[in-house]
Design a protein around this nucleic acid. Structure first.
Lengths: 141, 141
DNA sequence: CTACAAGCTACAGTGGGTAGAGGTTCAAGC
DNA sequence: GCTTGAACCTCTACCCACTGTAGCTTGTAG
């Protein structure tokens, strides 16, 4: 049986984060020593490793909750997992597209900057006047 | 003079967000009607437009605060603005790189999925076992 | 003059944790 | 068996950048 600190080290998680996952019901309540300290088994280790890995791939805790539910029911269709992973892929791709647009505009701003005084700084000018901006980020909320 | 709702519409900002910006000192306290309602002028409109545009480019409110300070002192060196914009560019590029790695791994997972039952789902398998993962995301905290 | 949209303040909640205060327990060394 | 101190416990508050709600007041069009 592992103490919380050992589990933390093994999975590269902060101790507080483990308690947080327990609090929101992502990890089951573990057994306790007589003194009230948490003790974990191998199943907990696996589950936490799964969570951390999914987090590293950018899945939200809600998505991870779904994945864990599916994982606990081995007979259910893999298609449901597929849907979640696809959704995540789409989101990652959307974020990349958005960031690429930002990158482009930032580079353009910097390239055109005369590097003199603020009064004729191209960067500030672009920020002031959206019309001078070529990026296709939306002006709406 | 504009009421807060009009200013909100003109800049594509939520009313609450404008009040929030005032609260944290990003927008100056505007004049008020006798009844206590905020009224804004053109300077406020420009300042808020600047803030929103910088937000769309991913600048943090702290960075925007710095940019606004610089913008208010036209004689200062443009180089300081340059530093902030460069910092932002680096951050955007780092985030893109990270997301590209995630995208690659997600695609690989999905490509290899047999689409049968959960018990032999490749996606879950990869999540379970980091060793099966090719992505170079760090395993540490 | 009345209706009601739009404004006001104050506070709570979001996601995904992180940090600290103040107290208790475990395990190793003597 | 006793002491020490690292690691544990709970509880609360904080981070960013907002967003939403409750309960009330003000402005304006008809």
């Amino acid at each position: 049986m592992l103490a919380i600190g050992t589990l933390a080290k093994r999975t590269g998680t902060k101790v507080q984060t483990i308690r947080y996952y327990e609090q929101i019901g992502l990890l089951p309540e573990p057994g306790r020593t007589e003194g009230g300290q948490r003790r974990y088994g191998d199943a907990d280790l696996d589950r936490l490793a799964f969570i951390r890995h999914a987090r590293q791939l950018g899945f939200t805790l809600e998505a991870i909750r779904e994945l864990l539910d599916l994982s606990d029911n081995p007979s259910r269709s893999c298609a449901e997992v597929d849907v979640i992973a696809h959704r995540q892929l789409k989101e990652v791709e959307a974020r990349i597209a958005r960031l690429e647009a930002l990158r482009k505009e930032l580079k353009r701003m910097l390239r055109e900057c005369s590097r003199d005084t603020v009064s004729d700084c191209r960067v500030l000018e672009v920020l002031r006047d959206h019309g001078a901006c070529l990026a296709d980020h939306d002006t709406g909320a």
